[in-house]
Design a protein around this nucleic acid. Structure first.
Length: 325
DNA sequence: AAGACGGCCAACCGCGTCAAT
DNA sequence: AATTGACGCGGTTGGCCGTCT
C-alpha cells in the first residue's frame, strides 16, 4: 500500500495555463497555502496535476518572483556560483532573490553560456579554451587530437584547430580559414554533399600537422600526461590574438561580433590571466576616456565583473545570501 | 509576402530521495 | 520491511515570436 495518486492522470489538462487558471490557483493558495499539492487542483477547481500546479506556482505565480531582465550583478553571481557548483540550479537560484532555478537555468542556457564562450572561456569548466586545448594537445596522441578537432568543427573549430596546428587565425575575416589553408572556407562554402570530403581533408591535414608537431616537441615531454608540462606548452598554444587588450570574438561564436562587452574576449591567452587582460583593458579604457558610449560603459563594467583568474571566480562567502550546504 | 531559422522561456519528463501507508 | 507516490531537481521539449532570406 502506497500513497494515493496525486491526480487522476486521464482527466488532467496540460499545456499553457490560462489567466483564469492562474487566478484560481493564486486565490486558493492565498487562502489555504501550499501544504498539499495533491489536493490543491481539486479544491481550487482546476483540471491540473498537482505537480503542474506546483510548477506553475513556484516558477511563475509566486508573488516574490522577479520577472524582468537579469541584472549584471545577478549574472555575475550566476557565473561565479556555476564555476563552483556546476548545474546545481536550485543552489544558485537560492542566492538570487526572486529568481527560480528554472529562470537561472534558462538564462544560463540561452545567454550566459554563449557569453562565456564568446570570451574564450569554456562554460563547463570555466577555464579558457586555450588552457583546455593545451592540456588536451599535450596528453592526446595526434590522431586523437585530430578526432577531437573534427568533433569541435561545429562550434569552436577555429580555436581547436589553431591550438592543434599553431597556425595563425584571421579572426577578422568572415571565416577563419588560415588555420589549415582554405579548408574551412572550403568547408563552409561547399555544397552539402562535398562536406564529407572536406572533413576528410581537414582530418588528414590535422593528422599531418600533429605529426609534424610531435617531431618538433622535446622527446622527454612527449604526450606525457603525468608530468607537469602544461605550463611549458601553454605559451606556444596561446590561442587568441590580442588587440589592445581585448578583441571581438570570431563569427563562429555566433554573437555576430557585436558591441556587447561579453562578446569581447578579455581572457585571451593561456599564460595570461584575466588580471593581466584587465590591466590592458583598463589601459584601453583610459585611452578611450572621452568615449562614454553605452558599449564603453559595458566594457568597463565587464572588467569589474571578471576580476579574477577565470578558472575559479572569486566569490567571497560573505556575498552568499543563503548558506551553501 | 512568406517561409525558414533561431532565440527564448514555460512546461513537461524522468530520475533520485524521502515519506506515508 | 516493502511498496508506492509526493516532492525536488536537472534535463529536455515545444510553441511563440522576432529576424532573416
Amino acid at each position: 500500500m502506497g500513497r494515493i495518486p496525486c491526480c487522476e492522470k486521464d482527466n488532467v489538462k496540460r499545456g499553457q495555463w490560462t489567466p483564469e487558471e492562474d487566478h484560481k490557483l493564486s486565490s486558493y493558495i492565498a487562502q489555504h497555502g501550499t501544504r498539499n499539492w495533491r489536493l490543491i487542483p481539486k479544491n481550487a477547481g482546476l483540471q491540473r496535476c498537482g505537480k503542474s500546479c506546483r510548477l506553475r506556482w513556484t516558477n511563475y505565480l509566486r508573488p516574490d518572483l522577479k520577472h524582468g531582465q537579469f541584472s549584471d550583478s545577478e549574472e555575475q553571481t550566476i557565473v561565479k556560483l556555476h564555476s563552483v557548483f556546476g548545474n546545481r540550479w536550485s543552489l544558485i537560484a537560492a542566492q538570487l532573490p526572486g529568481r527560480t532555478d528554472n529562470d537561472v537555468k534558462n538564462h544560463w542556457n540561452t545567454k550566459l553560456k554563449k557569453k562565456l564562450s564568446g570570451m574564450g572561456i569554456d562554460p563547463v569548466t570555466h577555464k579558457p579554451f586555450s588552457h583546455l586545448m593545451a592540456e588536451i594537445a599535450t596528453t592526446l596522441a595526434p590522431p586523437q587530437a585530430a578526432h577531437l578537432a573534427e568533433a569541435a568543427l561545429g562550434c569552436f573549430k577555429d580555436e581547436v584547430l589553431h591550438l592543434l596546428t599553431k597556425k595563425p587565425i584571421n579572426f577578422h575575416g568572415q571565416h577563419s580559414a588560415a588555420a589549415l589553408g582554405n579548408n574551412f572556407t572550403d568547408y563552409i562554402n561547399c555544397k552539402p554533399d562535398e562536406k564529407d570530403a572536406t572533413v576528410e581533408k581537414i582530418k588528414f591535414d590535422l593528422s599531418k600537422a600533429m605529426q609534424q608537431e610531435s617531431e618538433m616537441m622535446p622527446s622527454n615531454k612527449h604526450w606525457d600526461s603525468t608530468a607537469n608540462t602544461s605550463a611549458s606548452f601553454v605559451m606556444p598554444y596561446s590561442v587568441f590574438p590580442t588587440i589592445s587588450g581585448y578583441q571581438f570574438s570570431p563569427s563562429s561564436f555566433g554573437n555576430k561580433g557585436g558591441a556587447s562587452p561579453w562578446s569581447q574576449s578579455v581572457c585571451t591567452g593561456s599564460t595570461c590571466t584575466v588580471m593581466d587582460r584587465q590591466s590592458q583593458l583598463h589601459e584601453k579604457l583610459e585611452e578611450e576616456n572621452d568615449d562614454d558610449s553605452e558599449a564603453t560603459k559595458e566594457i568597463r563594467n565587464l572588467s569589474n565583473i571578471f576580476n579574477s583568474d577565470c578558472v575559479v571566480w572569486d566569490l567571497p562567502a560573505d556575498d552568499l545570501i543563503n548558506p551553501m550546504v
